[in-house]
């Protein structure tokens, strides 16, 4: 709490025009009847990976849609890159969806007793395809440009993760209930976008004043694009 206070004081010092700042909050919903994808069988890798690995492509909890990345586009928004970690554990990427500002560093670790290769699909950021042997050193991956990056392991077909590289540090990922919140926004006009891996993206224009602005997204009209792979 103390920490937070100091930061907001710092921000208010740095950004004098935003003496009082607003925030955007809301809920992402998905209320269509769908069969949620089944978890993956690991077959030969049962003992190394566990019998099943959850399928996280579409997670809905009481209509709340999880793992939606909400980002904000606006002229004056800036922020600070950070350092994040991604683990390969139980033949699953933890977490499954991440967001980070450009120039952030992603420390990639493997806790698994078997080989993985980590293959990233991106364009503006140089893609990588690196191996992780058991007890391998971590691998630092730097993202230079805003982009949606997919990560896969070619050896274990079910493993996938998403990294959303943003222009600024105003973003959030919806949690279990589908809610998100982006605080400390200077008042102004913005575009808010919500992106989901199988439901695509939607955006809304918003004018933020001091205090909370509620922006909800409903994806119920979209048919999920779940590939078999």
């Amino acid at each position: 709490m103390m920490h937070r206070l100091i930061i907001s004081i710092l921000i208010s010092l740095l950004v004098p025009s935003a003496a009082y700042s607003g925030s955007i909050k809301g809920k992402i919903t998905y209320s269509s009847e769908v069969k949620l994808p089944k978890s993956f069988e690991t077959g030969k890798y049962k003992k190394a990976c566990g019998q099943n690995v959850p399928n996280e492509k579409l997670l809905v909890n009481d209509k709340g849609l999880m793992n939606v990345v909400v980002t904000i586009e606006g002229k004056k928004l800036a922020g600070k890159p950070g350092e994040y970690t991604l683990d390969q554990k139980g033949c699953r990427y933890a977490p499954h969806v991440m967001a980070m500002m450009k120039d952030s560093v992603l420390k990639i670790h493997s806790s698994d007793p078997i080989n993985h290769n980590l293959h990233s699909y991106s364009f503006d950021n140089d893609p990588v395809n690196v191996m992780f042997l058991p007890n391998q050193d971590d691998y630092d991956l730097e993202f230079e440009e805003p982009e949606i990056v997919k990560i896969e392991c070619d050896l274990h077909g079910w493993m996938s993760a998403w990294i959303i590289v943003t222009d600024n540090s105003f973003f959030d990922i919806s949690g279990k209930e589908g809610t998100y919140s982006i605080p400390d926004l200077p008042p102004g006009k913005y575009t808010v976008s919500a992106w989901h891996e199988v439901l695509g993206s939607k955006s809304q224009k918003v004018t933020v004043k001091d205090g909370d602005t509620e922006i909800n997204f409903d994806f119920s009209d979209v048919t999920p694009q779940i590939s078999k792979k």
Binding site: N117, H119, P127, N129, V130, M131, L133, Q136, D137, Y139, D154
Partner: peptide
């Protein structure tokens, strides 16, 4: 070096 654009990874000195 691996083969860019394919699943053929590179095996760097890290490994």
């Amino acid at each position: 070096t691996g083969l860019s654009t394919t699943s053929m990874p590179r095996f760097s000195p890290r490994i």
